[in-house]
Design a protein around this nucleic acid. Structure first.
Lengths: 342, 342
DNA sequence: AAACCGACCGAAAAGGTTTTCGGACTTGCT
DNA sequence: AGCAAGTCCGAAAACCTTTTCGGTCGGTTT
């Protein structure tokens, strides 16, 4: 790659270099570059020209040191490999990237020690704020070290109600899912959930159950808890068909479970969606669009959640501090696996 | 959250605060905290105590300004949503996180304008280096702006041979896959690839074809190019069985394609792996472990690739600059879909 | 007793930017 | 000609840390 004037190793152009070249003082150069007033248009042009010549780039460290704020935030995930952190992270990066804020990414890998280590590093770098992204919706302990910058918890709420947390509304999501199935004319609705240890599973079940009750419908069989896997979906669907052959809709705790259920239904000769409608949760593209038929799923709007967390952090930085748990609406993405009964 | 002594808004403790409390000069305080010599043990203890009392955290901005290096690097992805960036990113974060380096995450979303914008921001923040992560293995143009810090390209190599790029060795991977199938006693091996427009697809085909030739085996049918989808896998497997019923192994261009092929084989009554062995590429957990049987796949070791890129960047920062394209070995993860013929 | 040495500590500069405030110069008016 | 007002520019301080170099003080050697 062609090096700019001043090859590697030569220190980057500084404001006083620009000022010297333009024949003005650093103060004037600064004002010119920052569009402050009290600078003659002609002078400003000279400065801008000089800056371009030297490909001057202001040193954010110096600026941050002076301003007392660095224009950076920390994004602390507890589990980057997990499926849910990434969209949140993308949303947050998006919301920040639009502004003048850069994002430090830290992955604690679910390790409290590592987390403290990262928090220390971030504090030392004088981040203006912090977003803590959890890997499940179960509440997590607040940061061990007290930090004197705003913190927003995303996905996993903080156990401390004084903190601000942004989470998906899984109860409402469960309700929406059942209502969609009812809208499709289904009345024999079963629920194959995921791992009972996850509040996400329990919340969705709570919402779904409430919606059934509101509609005056009896659930078909008991809610089946298991794991978030295709294998569980296959097994549970088998049992379901054995015991309740009249089922006409299956709400699954995740897209993986739904994929498993679809497999079993196909093998048992049940047409989807004509005989049985199937819904998943999470709207994991690779699973939903690869399925036969494509899978209707509930999307948690995680990217939007990330953006919201970022905006909340902005507000907190501007001293508009909020607190408590804020729930975000989910949305249903309708595909081929659910359709009105004809 | 309980605020530390000096509630929010009160500026953070500075070194001179510590010095004052300890009754020494800032110089001495600095030396004490940084384990420099020429400080009396007792004095050092006093300083450390004072620092702890004020929960002092050194200002990295000031340190960076002085040292001329910030202790940060930029991680520039072109497509965060893509499946491949994330593990690379994790590996890099891992390698850096272990040291004293923090990582700026930027997602350009495949947009050149945004990329330039991010590069500018990173330069302004005086990052010590830059890793550019591509979303496919096709070569990409080098960064538009000349930056005077080292740059390492990961996954997608730079078109400029003077740049250093770290990529997976897809040719070798294709070869390894075929050799594994041959080791399983298969001789009638077909290849259902992915999108021909991707060099990853072509490279894997090249390696696989070469391996077949080396073994003196004829490929079964032509390589089938299509898309990276389950639908394509299903369709292509159907055609394959129609034309070459004697096939005993199918190498698929990705795990998605392989999942599709598995579906079709099952429907046609072919047992996997007894009648036909199936392999995928990418080792995408959710697909491979959910499959029936679980899917043998080629793992590109992306996390390791990310770590390697990070180490290469370290070297470059230490003026041990390297150049050219470095290929990383892949590895086969054997699961139930391939087994020796009995 | 004078010189010296080692151990420890402090003053000051450097790093690059922004902001404040005072100074200089121009213009228009009496 | 003198003055007021306005316009533009520059000197200097501030942000916080690290490092260099000189200084102090006690004790030791000749």
């Amino acid at each position: 790659m062609a090096r700019p004037p001043g090859a590697r190793g030569a220190r980057a152009a500084t404001l006083s270099d620009v000022a010297k070249l333009a024949g003005v003082s650093v103060a004037t150069a600064s004002k010119a570059l920052n569009n402050r007033n009290h600078v003659h248009a002609q002078t400003r042009a000279r400065v801008l020209d000089a800056a371009a010549q030297l490909s001057f780039s202001p040193n954010s460290l110096a600026r941050g040191l002076l301003a007392g704020r660095s224009g950076t935030v920390g994004l602390l995930t507890s589990d980057l490999v997990g499926r849910f952190s990434l969209p949140i992270l993308m949303g947050a990066e998006d919301a920040f990237g639009a502004g003048q804020v850069s994002v430090f990414l830290c992955d604690a890998r679910g390790d409290a020690i590592r987390e403290r280590h990262h928090v220390q590093a971030l504090v030392s770098r004088r981040v203006d704020g912090l977003i803590v992204v959890g890997s499940s919706t179960d509440p997590r302990p607040p940061l061990a070290d007290a930090v004197d910058v705003p913190v927003v918890y995303a996905y996993a709420p903080s156990e401390d109600a004084e903190d601000l947390s942004i989470v998906p509304d899984n109860v409402e999501a469960g309700r929406m899912a059942v209502e969609h199935l009812i809208d499709c004319g289904r009345t024999r609705i079963a629920h194959i959930s995921g791992d009972r240890d996850y509040s996400a599973a329990r919340d969705r079940v709570a919402g779904a159950t409430a919606a059934l009750e509101d509609a005056g419908l009896e659930p078909v069989g008991q809610v089946a808890y298991g794991s978030w896997t295709e294998g569980w979906g296959r097994a549970a669907a088998g049992l379901l068909l054995d015991r309740h052959p009249d089922v006409d809709a299956v709400l699954c705790g995740s897209d993986q479970v739904a994929r498993g259920a679809l497999d079993t239904l196909r093998e048992r000769g049940r047409a989807v969606p004509d005989d049985v409608a199937v819904m998943g949760f999470d709207n994991w593209e690779v699973l939903t669009t690869g399925a036969r038929p494509q899978l209707t799923s509930v999307d948690m709007n995680l990217e939007e959640l990330g953006r919201t967390a970022a905006r909340a952090l902005f507000d907190a930085i501007d001293d508009e501090r909020d607190r408590g748990v804020r729930s975000m609406r989910c949305r249903i993405v309708v595909r081929g696996s659910t359709a009105p009964l004809s």
